[in-house]
Design a protein around this nucleic acid. Structure first.
Lengths: 330, 330
DNA sequence: CTGAAAGCGCTTACAG
DNA sequence: CTGAAAGCGCTTACAG
């Protein structure tokens, strides 16, 4: 019998529906014999509570909303991997919401609220600080907790999980400087991702400390666009090291620079960020900052479960450690 | 005022809640003056119907369930990209369900049913035919339509969207044969993905037609595992062409074979599948079969909306065209 | 065109 | 420990 309801169970087990509900939600509040009788019927009928009805009655949907802008980015799918695994462990369902540009922001926020999720993992890192504040206020008004997942803001009152990208970027730049590199470029994105803004800050700081002018080259993540862009610029401008804000950008640059006659790493060192397959498959293998993106998703989801359950939390702004993977390109 | 309900709107607009509901769901059934008055109040209060309550009352959640096994695979995120865009266009929400191995299969299916989704996009392509049939039966019993998305089965009664991987694989093998290659390997996966089973079939057919023994080398998608695996085998076995069932496997193989002293493409041609960034970033650039994975997701979602709305459908088993992208590796 | 009422399948005080 | 009843916020025949 598909779709047995709580009435079917109650009838067959000779108890009221309140008791069936208790067996499911507060089993210790019901007498053991009754409980086992009910449990037997539940199993026999293959009963599963209707999640929607439960959500309406209890005002808890055990569902978290994931707000993102581009699911095809390598970092997004890694984040989702971590989120999904932990959500499953804690029996939360996952609902996906995508923002298509700024005009769609308000509409999406309102949709998320109307869908009655218990909590939100916010992964869209293309928003300005004032927009983030407004979003936070709206979810706060609707009483829905939110965790920024691999998204950086100044506002430390919003729970967040990320890597200290500024520090990571500072350190890797420093390392290149110490090896005597001077014409060091940061290859960043035209689109303003908050994670990349942090990388720009760390890089710039290290360069300035060394008395050098920061050189941030902004381009697209699309290879068909950044390849000619790199070629045009670097055929006339010297470079002896470059840091890509993403592995794929670093590899794309490395291919261009080799075609321009540079020897990597001797004449030009190249490093990336994230330690994706792009880094492992490139020739030469890419040295990069390994950022634990899967873990960021997992930890963020775990943090959100604690907040939703009103558990004690010592630190709402978690920074996960990064490491440098040294390969052949630097 | 956050969280206004339909009662608030009805009260303020001086109508019954039935009328408010109609304004939202059957606007033409209500008098224009009334409708505009209600609409004004809705806007003023920022009212949005509670999706859960609506779902319970109407027995339609306007939510589709996506069942997958590994969100971090490049093909999965591309599929999701297409799904998300079309779902948004048709105002469907998306719920994600992941299957962690066969033991978890039944549990996940039951969860999906209890969550009351209106339709299912099934992306897990690691299941055997009999398992697929059982799953289809269960969703059928629960009256939930399902579309197989980049998943292949023999059962043509289940709606599906994919590429004709067998044909694609047959053609690319044929092309290599015509160029005089003989020691052609298919680099496949140990894990039994249905899309790869098809590629194996097409490759084998072409080889047999040419009077050659098919050589299917099964390995892991993990570079750290397949690299030593390739090295060990191919240092003693000649190869003059290889087809990777994924771009990343093809690139990994290409790196190994070059380290073993082969010249690509002259001494060994290499081709891949999907036309991901891996193909575009590799040295030499990877020739590959471009499979429109994003489109598969989009078309599958569109097909599902038609089924959910009981629209007329001429073909429930859609095959999207593939193309060969010729680059430097073959 | 509009409203009163029942109902969707649960949970949760409240009594006992 | 258990049950009767109200209620979650909507939709949907049914009348009128």
């Amino acid at each position: 019998m598909p779709n047995a309801t709580i009435y079917d169970v109650a009838g067959k087990a000779q108890v009221s529906l309140a008791t069936v509900s208790r067996v499911l939600n507060n089993p210790d509040k019901v007498n053991e014999a009754t409980r086992e009788r009910v449990l037997a019927v539940i199993k026999e009928l293959g009963y599963r509570p209707n999640a929607i009805a439960r959500g309406l009655a209890s005002r808890k949907t055990t569902t978290v909303g994931i707000v993102l802008s581009d699911v095809t980015r390598a970092s997004t799918s890694q984040l989702l991997g971590g989120i999904i695994d932990i959500a499953k462990k804690y029996n939360y369902s996952i609902k996906l919401f995508s923002i298509n540009g700024e005009l769609d922001l308000q509409e999406t926020i309102r949709t998320v609220v109307s869908e009655q999720v218990d909590g939100i993992l916010f992964l869209d890192d293309e928003l300005a600080s004032d927009q983030m504040e407004m979003i936070n206020k709206q979810f706060d008004d609707a009483n829905i907790p939110m965790v920024l997942t691999n998204v950086l803001t100044r506002d430390k009152k919003i729970p967040s999980v990320a890597v200290d990208y500024e520090k990571a970027s500072y350190e890797i730049t420093k390392e290149l400087l110490e090896k005597g590199r001077k014409d060091i470029y940061l290859l960043s994105t035209v689109r303003r991702y908050s994670v990349n803004v942090e990388k720009e800050a760390g890089y710039s700081l290290a360069m300035k400390e060394a008395g050098l002018e920061p050189r941030i080259f902004k381009t697209s993540g699309d290879i068909a666009i950044n390849t000619p862009h790199f070629t045009e610029y670097f055929k006339n401008n010297h470079v002896d090291a470059a840091i890509g804000v993403r592995d794929s950008i670093a590899v794309s640059f490395m291919n261009v620079i080799e075609d321009l006659g540079y020897k990597v790493p001797d004449e030009c060192a190249v490093v990336g960020f994230q330690n994706t397959k792009y880094a492992k498959l490139s020739r030469p293998n890419l040295t990069c900052v390994d950022t634990p993106v899967y873990d960021i998703g997992a930890v963020a989801m775990r943090l959100l479960t604690k907040i939703m359950k009103n558990e004690e939390i010592d630190n709402i702004n978690i920074k996960l450690p990064h490491t440098v993977i040294r390969r052949k390109s630097a």
